[in-house]
Nucleic acid binder design. Structure first.
Length: 472
DNA sequence: TGTGCCGGGGC
DNA sequence: GCCCCGGCACA
């Protein structure tokens, strides 16, 4: 995967659909094969299984299995020429999640500046870019979709002017709010913007079901959490207050929160101190005192914003307010895509950084054991139910739902967190001893093939076990 | 009575 | 682990 691909690939819906379709299509193929007759087959975790089975279902080796065709269609629909991944669905699904990570590795990382706020912030923008050694013209970067926003990996504010440091601080603190991301004052269409976070969400969501990765769910403080629009009132307040010149520093770079650090820093304190302008009819809220002072000085006191002179009068026109960032996160967490099969919804919202597949995210330390738990709980939202005729045999772990992104554990390795969760859930779901599960409606091998074709039965039926081929 | 399949046992 | 079967519950 080269950088060209990264830059040209939009992380949009179709890609998400690819993951989902490939998974489902794999299942479809599976069932088709099952229904087509008692063809013995082996299962694999990826789309290759579908292709492999298509060898038997379809006379042609190159015959396009449904799953493969869907993948190719998806590519036509915007995934470009990413054809080097072969037929396997895993690679296809993994591809989107790799993009951001590689983006961060781009030597010429850039910030996706909000093009809807041109003009005044240009100077500040250029200042920022200059300090980061970013020489690429801004216009080259702007066409990128908002959901795909790489940023410089190592931002070093040291040596910057106070203004720039302050701007960075403001951005970090405000980045939890989508309100700043997509100000209503923007002349451009807000719809793509609102769709942006949705896409990020869906991308993250679907990725969780596909790639071999996890997010560090223990990090609730990720400032990159994209947020659905909260209350309109809040929006108004924020947006109204975001039209001043100070907003530029807030708005201009806030998108960088999307992909800040691979491992975002924790926020120790959920209470965020903000500074609210007390000027009549002005509800501007900024996260830094200097910012609000400058706002008051320039907007309300009519002083030159470039002038560093301040008599301290601005102090009278703003006050500190505390904003509970957790409350925002909680509101967001309600949108967390959870699986109906999960025992409990993840307590935190998966940050979009989870979009980034990082092996270091997978290997979470034991002290963060809840992270894999979250993965296991949220991942199976789109599952490929994989079973075999021989699933009945051997360890029960052969018969279980397997998410695409979930690494298959050896049968002997029942200590995995995923299996632990199953163990925790299973006893409650297990029927009481002595009770039988109701007889299924589906015809079983015995009825389908009859006694004379007993060799065509599934193994379980032959052994008088629960039929594995025609399950209910 | 036929069927599905649990539980148990032999190898 | 593979394979078989007695026996029970259900339609």
């Amino acid at each position: 995967m080269d950088s060209r691909y990264i830059l040209e690939k939009p992380l949009t819906g179709p890609r998400v659909g690819a993951a989902d379709f490939s998974c489902r299509s794999g299942r479809t193929v599976l069932h088709t094969a099952e229904k087509s007759g008692p063809v013995p087959y082996k299962h694999a975790m990826d789309g290759g299984a579908a292709a492999a089975r298509s060898d038997k279902v379809s006379p042609k080796r190159n015959g396009v299995s449904p799953g493969v065709r869907i993948l190719q269609d998806v590519e036509k629909n915007g995934l470009g020429d990413h054809r080097d991944t072969g037929y396997t669905g895993i690679l296809k699904r993994a591809s989107p999640t790799h993009c951001p990570g590689i983006n961060r590795q781009l030597p010429c990382g850039f910030m996706h500046l909000d093009i809807r706020n041109p003009g005044k912030q240009a100077d500040l923008v250029n200042s920022f870019r200059a300090t980061q050694g970013l020489n690429a013209p801004l216009t080259e970067k702007q066409p990128l979709p908002s959901t795909h926003i790489p940023v410089p990996r190592n931002r070093n504010p040291s040596g910057h002017a106070d203004k720039e440091v302050m701007a960075a601080t403001v951005l970090t603190s405000l980045s939890t709010s989508p309100l700043v991301l997509y100000p209503s004052s923007a002349p451009t269409v807000p719809e793509p913007a609102s769709r942006g976070w949705k896409e990020v969400l869906s991308a993250s969501y679907s990725s969780s079901t596909s790639g071999n990765w996890s997010w560090d769910a223990s990090d609730q403080s990720v400032p990159s959490t994209p947020s659905p629009p909260l209350s309109n009132d809040t929006n108004k307040n924020f947006l109204l207050s975001s039209q001043g010149d100070d907003v530029n520093e807030d708005v201009t770079e806030s998108p960088h929160f999307m992909f800040e650090d691979p491992i975002p820093r924790k926020r120790k304190n959920s209470m965020k101190v903000m500074f609210k302008c007390l000027w009549k009819n002005c509800e501007k809220v900024l996260s830094t005192s200097s910012g609000i002072q400058r706002h008051v000085r320039t907007v309300h006191l009519g002083r030159n914003s470039d002038s560093d002179y301040s008599d301290g009068e601005e102090d009278f026109y703003y006050s500190e307010i505390e904003v509970n960032m957790d409350s925002l996160s909680e509101g967001l967490s309600s949108l967390t895509p959870t699986s109906p099969t999960t025992a409990a919804p993840p307590p935190v919202f998966p940050p979009p950084l989870a979009d980034v597949p990082h092996s270091e995210h997978i290997s979470v330390s034991a002290s963060q054991s809840h992270a894999p738990t979250l993965l296991s709980q949220s991942a199976p939202s789109t599952l490929c139910h994989i079973r075999t005729d021989h699933a009945y045999q051997g360890p029960v772990t052969h018969v279980r739902t397997v998410s695409i992104g979930e690494k298959r554990q050896p049968a002997s390795n029942t200590h995995a967190t995923v299996n632990k969760n199953h163990a925790l859930i299973t006893p409650a779901a297990k029927s009481a001893p002595g009770t039988r599960k109701p007889r299924g409606e589906a015809k079983k091998c015995r009825k389908v093939y009859g006694m004379e074709k007993r060799d065509m039965w599934c193994t379980a039926c032959r052994w008088k076990k629960a039929c594995q081929r025609f399950t209910d």
